[in-house]
Amino acid sequence: MTGIVESIGGGAISAMSSFRSTIFAAAVTIFKAFNKEICNSASFSVLISQIYFTAVEILPMFIAISVLLGTLVMGILFQTIKEIGLDQHLGRILVGFAVTELSPFVTVLLLALRSSSAINTEIAVMKVNREIDTLTAFRIDADRYLFIPRIVNGMISLVLLNGLFSIILVTSGLIFSKLIFGMGLATYSQILAGSVHLSDSIILVAKCLTFGFFITLIPILSGLRATYDVTTIPVSVLHGMIRVFLAIILIEVLSLVARFI
């Protein structure tokens, strides 16, 4: 019995300390990101290659998934709206659900699955191979060359890919509004514009930036936790991915709270 209580307590403490250390690391990273020295051609070229691996390489797959998912979701959504007679709330549902909720969620999931796991493994491997130690020995700032470009890449990629996903969703919406409601472009855009609010758009961008920030920061921190033993690499990736998903859920909840306050 004591054992169970002890393990619950231990788990809670370690979760709290992990949360605290993540927030602390986030604060330090943000502080460092605004340091002028961070902007140099080396870190810029790392950023470019990161964007290439994170956003450009997955683009064909991302667009395919967006079109498939977007078409399916919009088709089902519009058909349901018509069946239950919520026609006049079409704009609100389209913007409130599809653009501000579904689109960033799907984008962050796709990026987390592909890039977060990759970054986590990469950092853990570097740790095991003592590459990070080598960088330190040569007095090369790992934050500047390794971490911050990845984090900035996460933020840029998420905002851009989310934008593309939203455009694809709205375009499928236009097709289905024509097919299901017989609505033209003028009416559709009028409805859409009527439902878009500045506050929602700000929350959306802030949410994407936060998603991008944490789905790259957490894997980095997790990778750094690996020891010099090769077997710690999968453990580090496992823990990292769990934390990434918890972070996604937490950010989603907070953004919902912010939207409905």
Partner: peptide
């Protein structure tokens, strides 16, 4: 990467 960023930013 340049093309991706330019096109995405233009579209958005």
């Amino acid at each position: 990467v340049g093309i991706f960023i330019i096109i995405s930013v233009l579209l958005i």
